[in-house]
Design a protein around this nucleic acid. Structure first.
Lengths: 192, 192
DNA sequence: GGGTCGAGGTAGACAGCGTCTACGGTGGTC
DNA sequence: GACCACCGTAGACGCTGTCTACCTCGACCC
């Protein structure tokens, strides 16, 4: 299956492996080239700058996240609240099982996110969130987009502060589940 | 006043200025030394590694944030809800007026936060948050520490996604105030 | 008062990085 | 068979953080 894998794809794959195993700071152009078995100048044919290679790797992570989300939703019940809980779980699992990937995806200083279609990849996820919020919480005020934004930010903050160890230290909790539940209940009201 | 300012303090100050004007990636040891008018090896006397200098600069930011918070609380009404809103405002203002500083303070990969007293500087802020949450929201479940953790994460997420431009794009909002209000209301109940 | 010692800053080296440039080699096309 | 465009190589440049040897100057001690 790796036969005929072009160098461009191989660089993304090798870079992603490196990212997952050693974190964003280890993902240098030269190290990727070394592991791909090419000279340090070769990646330049496909990625003129380091930033563009990192962005391609990040985009790979976004498509993985989208895939995991849709897979989880495919086998979740129809209740919007449980669907939102499933999305939150996927988000958290992704960040904990692939922390390097997750960290890179939100290092906007490394990604020039405006130029590279990253927003186009992540916006559909936000649209999904907004729809679920609108279904789970039919009151018009505040508008679902605002609630979805606040909920997304909450999810993101919990995941980030949790993986950094700040939240476990501050709250004394051993599992982020309680925090996720608290966030969902706060933004959507008590679960039925 | 700058007379007798030791090199150590001068490095922190110059590094902080550089951080505020050009972002975390511009804060190199050699550039700080250049701007401080010393050789590139001089900082090593006080900060054996780049990481320790960055951590000192970040800690400087934490003390500034704590100072702004206590100043805002000193002139805020006694109602815990409005005090929490004031804290949230300070947090947001800090991140928007000093984005480089804010970004560095949460770049845990650059800070080795465990070793350097950063947690000791930020934990009192969390304690304050917990107290205010307990006063603003006397119901025992979920425990105030969990609510405070979720609220802190929400605040942090809003500020981060807002400064990156993700939230303005996704929600179409022009001001983060609505999101902050939504978050406070979600976690604390409707304002009296 | 002269010698000693240590703190604090200088200067050069090293490896690694991203980027730029000139160069080769190879396969497809007229 | 000649040409050309593609694709990878190899070396250079300036930058980075870190390590090391050196130097200088002031305080302390006998």
């Amino acid at each position: 299956m790796d036969i005929d894998e072009g160098l461009r794809d191989r660089l993304i794959r090798v870079g992603g492996d490196l990212l997952d195993s050693a974190g964003p700071s280890a993902v240098s152009l030269r190290e990727i080239a070394r592991r791909a078995g090419v000279s340090h100048g070769a990646p330049r044919r496909y990625f003129p700058t380091h930033l563009e290679l990192l962005s391609a790797i990040a985009r790979d992570g976004y498509t993985d996240l989208v895939g995991r989300t849709t897979a989880a939703l495919a086998e979740a019940a129809d209740d919007p609240r449980t669907r939102l809980a499933a999305v939150a779980r996927v988000y958290l699992d992704f960040a904990t099982t692939r922390p390097g990937r997750y960290a890179l995806m939100f290092r906007h200083d490394l990604l020039e996110s405006g130029h590279l279609g990253l927003r186009e990849t992540s916006l559909p996820l936000f649209g999904l969130l907004t729809d679920l919020v609108a279904r789970a919480r039919p009151t018009p005020e505040p508008p679902p987009r605002v609630v979805a934004g606040a909920l997304w930010a909450n999810l993101h903050g919990i995941v980030q502060l949790w993986t950094w160890g700040s939240l476990p230290l501050a709250t004394g909790a051993a599992d982020p589940g309680a925090l996720l539940d608290a966030a969902l209940t706060a933004h959507l009201g008590p679960s039925a």
